[in-house]
Design a protein around this nucleic acid. Sequence first.
DNA 1: CCGTAGTACACGTATGTACGAGTTGAGGAG
DNA 2: CTCCTCAACTCGTACATACGTGTACTACGG
Lengths: 261, 261
Amino acid sequence: MAELPLPDLDPTSDRAVFRQIADHIRDAIEQGVLAEGEKVPSEARLMQHYGVARMTIRNALQVLQGEGLTVAEHGRGVFVRSHPPVRRLASDRFARRHREQGKAAFIAETEGAGGKPTVDSIKITEEVPSASVAELLGLTAADSVIRRSRRYLINGQPVETAVSYIPAEIARGTRIAEPDSGPGGIYARLEELGHRLDHFVEEIRSRMPLRDEMRALKLAPGVPVFHLVRTAYTTAGRAVEVCDTVMSSDAYVLSYELPAR
Amino acid sequence: MAELPLPDLDPTSDRAVFRQIADHIRDAIEQGVLAEGEKVPSEARLMQHYGVARMTIRNALQVLQGEGLTVAEHGRGVFVRSHPPVRRLASDRFARRHREQGKAAFIAETEGAGGKPTVDSIKITEEVPSASVAELLGLTAADSVIRRSRRYLINGQPVETAVSYIPAEIARGTRIAEPDSGPGGIYARLEELGHRLDHFVEEIRSRMPLRDEMRALKLAPGVPVFHLVRTAYTTAGRAVEVCDTVMSSDAYVLSYELPAR
DNA sequence: CCGTAGTACACGTATGTACGAGTTGAGGAG
DNA sequence: CTCCTCAACTCGTACATACGTGTACTACGG
């Protein structure tokens, strides 16, 4: 590794030393002096360069990690985070013409982009929905739902977890309540059952992942998630599915078209 | 403050002590034992309770702060983050019927929700666009754009920064190039100039804020941002504006309607 | 009664030390 | 030549200590 030219500390500045150091390294990353995947000087080297204690260096590195700029690997070093190729989700991704090709949206898209899609951890239960799901589906406290949860992976890398809720009255006993929901996915099944889909509403939040989500999606520290809740409505105006998904934010770009009229 | 009932450490666990402590406090927050805005026991008290060094406690608190669950206030204590009321952005927010009311989208919405909207830091320049903006607008390297940047606040709290790019050929000399763009905002001006708007395309990313963004939006540590790029297209199929906005993720829920056909 | 100075307490920054644990590569044994 | 051991280097965890700086309450004095 060539010598990384880091500036010296400014003793007259009232900015904390560890912040100054974080600034130096951040600048190096943003200006490409430290490229993606490249190794940041070790804690020991930085201590020597700046003449400060190890904790000061670690504080600085922690700042960068919190910003999602670096990842520390135990025993190897600290590296500039490399961003994986992103999936771009277009607003027509659930259009019927795609569904009629016989593949679920995720599989079709991923293969189209040259990736190897996998779905695992499929679990199906019947239960009483939470208050928010019940409200979205227009159900009362007495109704129950079929809950389909699963995890999506691209080339073995988890990118998204999803949980669908369908009124049990609709889905019970159908293929929707089985692990393999068949060609075209559950939206195709819903239409076969006479629920002609009209539109979806998606609500998007962004936040830091919970502990379980961090594990399920193998997220690096400092990577937020999209939390997306999609509700499917039929032409009759009835909500027939709610899908609650959590997506790694650095695997996705969401794209929507809005009317101006 | 009543005594917070925290469990003891599990010495047989191979989970790091500071992680165990973070888990305890996180559980207390998630189960509502520690409510929003409530104070987490001080570092000194936690040291005493667990019988560990201050650094161990600080590491634990840092974990929670990185997850966006708590905020430390110098001299006061550590508090459970309270989430501000969120603005829900609907996909019809740029519909013409709203525009014709004479108010810009942001102002109308905020007042409707009972908040006091402000716009500040309005800066207007003419410059050569970046490659990505030029591509979205379909411009060549020789063309320049009018750049309108501003910051939006609700009740004095900054929630969003936005930068619009409009081809200079369209906007130069018009009210679009002036700080006060007039009733209905720049979309109304564009339509008056004969550019009838047809639709918008929004691309949404989520990531941790840069330093400047953190300052401009007064973001707490551990709060990600939405990065939204909207392109406006006319009925003639021409892109007439690109708007690049950064929004505090805990002030917004984005909502979109997708066709199923 | 009010204002202010002082003090206790809170988190922020920084130093130094020690040991644990994962990774890597060099060098020796077979 | 190959395999294995071991040393060196890396980050992870944890201890102890000190002082700085912002906050809030109390007690004193005017």
